[in-house]
Design a protein around this nucleic acid. Structure first.
Lengths: 99, 99
DNA sequence: GCAACGCGTCGGGAAAAGTTGACGCGTCGG
DNA sequence: CCGACGCGTCAACTTTTCCCGACGCGTTGC
């Protein structure tokens, strides 16, 4: 899951798919990468359950499938508490400094 | 940032550091990895700003520094909307199915 | 039909990541 | 002062990731 998101190209692919389903060549147009590379990135995303493919004629539309990202949110959750804590204490310091 | 979290060992290191600062050998004990490996993983985390080192005597305590994780939260945020949407519609289907 | 198109996949090469033993440096305890 | 300890770093190796050209297969349009 995390390793699927480790690559910036794959994250950008997901970002693009937020606006709706897209065909491979269409997606590949955004990058200075060969089409096979994009195809393989999409396979990785599919392996993580983050996209779904819908073959339509000779095109193949990829759909965003965001549920697995909830797992990332779960991992992140205990830390959210921590960094909010941090920001709060920072704010307190600043309050004291400039009050 | 994401690539720093891509490795399961590094995520587990962060998890351990949630409970408080720890020395390297102490951390290394949890894994079936050599100590140098752990050291280098910690360097990666330090490069991402996720840990801070506090040398104390011949030990070196690593502290969790969770702020940069907020960046992950930000990236995730637009998707949160999506997967909640998904769960809601799933719930609606189930409601209709079993009501 | 048949040429052009859209894709997946495979083979192979390059680059990056991960792992370890060996070494060196500072610190601690006796 | 000296041996043991904790740690970072380096050199070398293995594994994984990334990228592309080449190929094959089904689809589309003429």
């Amino acid at each position: 899951m995390f390793s699927a998101l480790a690559n910036p190209v794959r994250r950008q692919l997901l970002d693009s798919l937020r606006e709706g389903p897209r065909a491979v060549s269409d997606l590949a147009g955004q990058f200075s990468l060969s089409r096979p590379s994009i195809s393989e990135h999409l396979q990785v995303l599919r392996g993580a359950g983050l996209v779904r493919e819908e073959p339509r004629g000779r095109h193949r539309y990829y759909h965003l499938e965001p549920q697995p990202l909830a797992e990332v949110g779960q991992w992140l959750h205990p830390y959210e508490h921590f960094w909010r804590e941090r920001l709060r204490s920072l704010r307190d310091v600043l309050d004291e400094e400039f009050s």
